[in-house]
Nucleic acid binder design. Structure first.
Lengths: 210, 210
DNA sequence: TCTATAATTGAATCATCATTAGATTATTTC
DNA sequence: GAAATAATCTAATGATGATTCAATTATAGA
């Protein structure tokens, strides 16, 4: 019972997916390395071959999730379209994405704090690297938020949107979106697209010029 | 070192407040009974005199928080005012409340899942009572959400608001509100009132009839 | 094919908690 | 001011769970 044949072997990706899924159910602290390992038919010890420790694993989950959204949002923001069209498209990919990957979506909402809660007192060597990457993650999350801010800003500047407190309006939208990852259940009354559509309607009407 | 003189003695309320505060910082699983006890100058063991166990303590925190909001919301809903005025008032008390009690607000968002995650396998005797109260809590939370739904429904029925998917619109609003409890920091650029004001504007415009 | 590297495992370590038990000191009630 | 009750404490108990170690087997490169 040592290395498994290639077809039963798991990779980093598999583990991240599994971790997100377990995390969604139980939350960071309540999730044991054993739980995650079990999800991919490994033992807890094996996970340490792929990730330095539990913190790094959580961080990797969040990083991967954030990358996916940002990759989808960037081209939209850069496109040559009206701010309203852009915003509608952004909401669509973001919200639909959340309904498709509820595990990561919920982790993104709930586990941010776990990340922050990890004490800044550096014990071992890994810890330093962790702090660095965690800070980078938060910067990147701010960049993500900025994609929304810029689009709204642009709409206001062009007179397409009424003047609003851009930072606050963005947080209002993101709060609504994030919450979708919490309450959405597959097979429910509304599809991800319908939810995104209705939310676009809500926020675009709220932005309509006077 | 046993019972402390009356003026140093803590009550249930003190503990709840302390627990909410520690919970906000670290989250349920990462919060130890010792942490909470320390906040009120007690030892962990002493907490068991006031609460059956850690789960019950968390539950009590959430129950108390929910009661406060509901008590404020009910009279507004029952008042003889336009749906728009009611909604504006509801947002005001809810959001301002969240900014004043960020600890409870954050707990309400983040710890709900901890509550759910607690396995339904009943071990000891306390457990049964816990399940009962937990379910009651969730019903009450739905009642809370219903206060919003009813108000919006009413506005739509009266033609004050455009027709919307009421359940979804409610969740959109609540997501935005809850998120305030997460990002709001005292002494920030905007006061609780200003935030509430801007959010009212956002959602009432979104509801304006066509 | 031999060798280095990768992926895994079971067992051991070590620390951290929740929770309980029994003793001790304030308060209250009668 | 006794007796009963409330609020605390210190010192176990028992689990759980992250992390490390040394051993083992697969795969890839030369």
């Amino acid at each position: 019972m040592a290395r498994k044949p290639a077809d039963q072997s798991v990779n980093r990706e598999d583990i991240l997916r599994a971790a997100a899924s377990v995390l969604q159910r139980s939350g960071y602290e309540a999730t044991t390395m054993k739980d995650i390992a079990a999800e991919v038919n490994l033992t807890a010890a094996s996970l340490y071959h792929h990730f330095k420790n539990k913190d790094m694993l959580l961080l990797a989950v969040l990083e991967a999730g954030l990358d996916i959204v940002i990759d989808q949002l960037e081209p939209i923001v850069q496109a040559e379209k009206s701010a309203a069209e852009k915003l509608r498209a952004m909401i669509a990919v973001h919200v639909v994405g959340l309904t498709q990957h509820t595990a990561v979506g919920a982790a993104m909402v709930f586990e941010i704090r776990s990340l922050l809660a990890i004490p800044a007192t550096l014990h071992n060597g890994h810890h330093h690297e962790f702090i660095i990457r965690r800070d980078a993650f938060f910067q990147r999350r701010d960049y993500f938020e900025d994609l929304y801010r810029r689009t709204i800003e642009e709409g206001v500047a062009r007179g397409e949107f009424r003047p609003v407190d851009v930072a606050l309006f963005t947080k209002t939208m993101l709060g609504a979106h994030n919450w979708v990852g919490v309450w959405y259940r597959e097979g429910g009354r509304l599809s991800g697209h319908q939810i995104a559509e209705a939310m676009s309607e809500t926020f675009l009407r709220a932005l309509a010029p006077v």
